[in-house]
């Protein structure tokens, strides 16, 4: 086969911990193949080499928390044929979206000696809240095999095989005993698959790292948690982690807090 011109890949960082970019580097056995198939034009976590856009594929990690980043993501979008967000920050705002439930000015005044130097938005938001996104890969961090699948699918112009059903399906494929039914609260029934049911495989409840699944009935599952003895604080905490700002989780955690206030 005649060698086609290699598509240009860019990997961008916004407000994030770099863990999802590291998942790219963690593809140790495939890295040379990836570098062979794609022209790595911009990937600061891996190389100081910078090539100009436009890019065929942009992987975007992180959320938008500053007005500067809100501008920058529009520029990235302009320069990218396909834009794929990777991880909970980029798809839901990340753990830093906990600020969305509080007054960020108050945080700044408590944390920084000179708050006047800090310029930040009141919220942490997903990339898709700012620009159109072609595909969102979930997880905190993303699963490297799924990341490889998304890159392969892009290279061959096909749809990635990334299921959006519950974690429960992955548990059953592995033959796990359901931890929820045997007594441990588990977010699996409302959480997006992708991790391979990592925590339930070690008899732990799911923490919801991959955010809400395709049709999450958060209210029903939380009702089951409450019936099994979880307090308002328990359920609000479990819903407010890496995907706190994902609408299905945010709505339910706010409803729980409101219910608690009204009962007092």
């Amino acid at each position: 086969m005649a060698r086609r011109k290699r598509p240009k890949l860019a990997v961008w960082k916004f407000a994030s911990c770099d863990g999802c970019q590291l998942s790219v580097l963690d593809l140790e056995d495939e890295l040379l193949d990836i570098a062979g198939a794609l022209d790595i034009a911009y990937f600061k976590e891996a190389t100081s080499v910078e090539k100009p856009g436009p890019f065929d594929l942009s992987l975007v990690e992180g959320s938008v928390t500053t007005s500067h980043d809100a501008e920058r993501i529009r520029e990235v979008r302009k320069q990218s044929k396909a834009l794929v967000t990777i991880g909970a920050c980029a798809t839901a705002g990340g753990i830093q979206a906990l600020r969305n439930f509080k007054d960020v000015k108050e945080f700044v005044s408590v944390v920084y000696a000179s708050p006047e130097y800090i310029q930040t938005l009141a919220t942490s938001t997903a990339i898709a809240d700012h620009v159109p996104v072609d595909f969102e890969l979930r997880g905190c961090p993303v699963n490297k095999e799924q990341l490889l699948e998304v890159i392969s699918a892009f290279l061959h112009g096909r749809k990635p095989n990334v299921a959006s059903h519950s974690v429960c399906v992955e548990c059953k494929l592995r033959g796990n005993v359901c931890v929820m039914v045997t007594g441990t609260p588990c977010l699996g029934p409302i959480t997006h698959a992708g991790c391979g049911a990592l925590c339930p495989s070690y008899q732990r409840g799911c923490y919801g790292c991959y955010g809400p699944m395709e049709a999450p009935n958060t209210t029903s599952l939380v009702r089951a948690f409450r019936q099994a003895g979880s307090s308002t604080v328990d359920v609000v905490r479990v819903l407010r982690t890496f995907n706190a700002n994902a609408p299905a989780f945010r709505k339910e955690s706010e409803a729980q807090e409101k219910g608690e206030e009204e009962s007092q």
């Binding site: 495939e30 193949d33 990836i34 198939a37 490889l148 699948e149 890159i151 392969s152 699918a153 290279l155 061959h156 096909r158 095989n161 059903h165 519950s166 429960c168 399906v169 059953k172 359901c178 699996g188 029934p189 409302i190 699944m213 395709e214 049709a215 999450p216 009935n217 029903s220 599952l221």
Partner: peptide, 26 residues
């Protein structure tokens, strides 16, 4: 009440649905 989690169908001894996926390498 239903969470659409699919547990009922996966523990059911008669449910037989499967999905077929094609994958390619890099």
């Amino acid at each position: 009440r239903c969470t659409s989690c699919a547990n009922c169908t996966l523990v059911c001894p008669t449910c037989f649905c499967a999905s077929v996926e094609d994958v390619t390498d890099l």
